[in-house]
C-alpha cells in the first residue's frame, strides 16, 4: 500500500468520526498555477487541514473561507491571482490565477 497522504480519504475518515468537513477543489487555473485542476484541500471545523490547492500561498485564506462554509452550509467559489489584490489579501506570487470551489461535506 502507498503511504502517500490522500485528502479525500482523510475527508471521509473525518466525516465518519463525526467531524464537520469542507472540501476545497481547484476548478480552473490560468498561467503558472502550482496545483492542477482537481487538486484538493480538506478542512475540518477546527481548522485542521490536509492537501493543497496552491504551493502554500492561499491555503490560509481558503481555510478561513472553509470555516464559513461549514457554518453556513452554502458553497463558495473563490478567485485568487496577482490581479485580485483588492478582492483578496493574498495572491499567488508565481503570477498565475486559480479558482477554488469550497463546499461542505454532508
Amino acid at each position: 500500500m502507498t503511504i502517500m497522504l490522500d485528502p479525500l480519504v482523510t475527508a471521509e475518515t473525518w466525516a465518519r468520526e463525526g467531524r464537520s468537513v469542507a472540501i476545497a477543489t481547484v476548478m480552473e487555473t490560468w498561467g503558472s498555477a502550482p496545483r492542477p485542476a482537481g487538486s484538493h484541500l480538506v478542512i475540518d471545523g477546527e481548522g485542521n487541514f490536509e492537501g493543497s490547492v496552491s504551493g502554500g500561498c492561499v491555503e490560509g485564506a481558503v481555510i478561513t473561507e472553509a470555516l464559513d462554509v461549514i457554518t453556513s452550509g452554502a458553497p463558495k467559489m473563490l478567485d485568487f491571482g496577482v490581479a485580485d489584490e483588492t478582492a483578496w489579501r493574498v495572491g499567488l506570487s508565481c503570477g498565475g490565477r486559480i479558482r477554488v470551489y469550497v463546499e461542505k461535506l454532508n
Binding site: 479525500l8 471521509e12 472540501i23 461542505k104 461535506l105 454532508n106
Partner: peptide, 14 residues
C-alpha cells in the same frame, strides 16, 4: 458533496 458519493469515489479508487 454528499458523504455517500465521496465513499463511492474512494471505493472505486481503492
Amino acid at each position: 458533496m454528499r458523504l455517500d458519493h465521496l465513499a463511492e469515489l474512494n471505493a472505486a479508487r481503492r
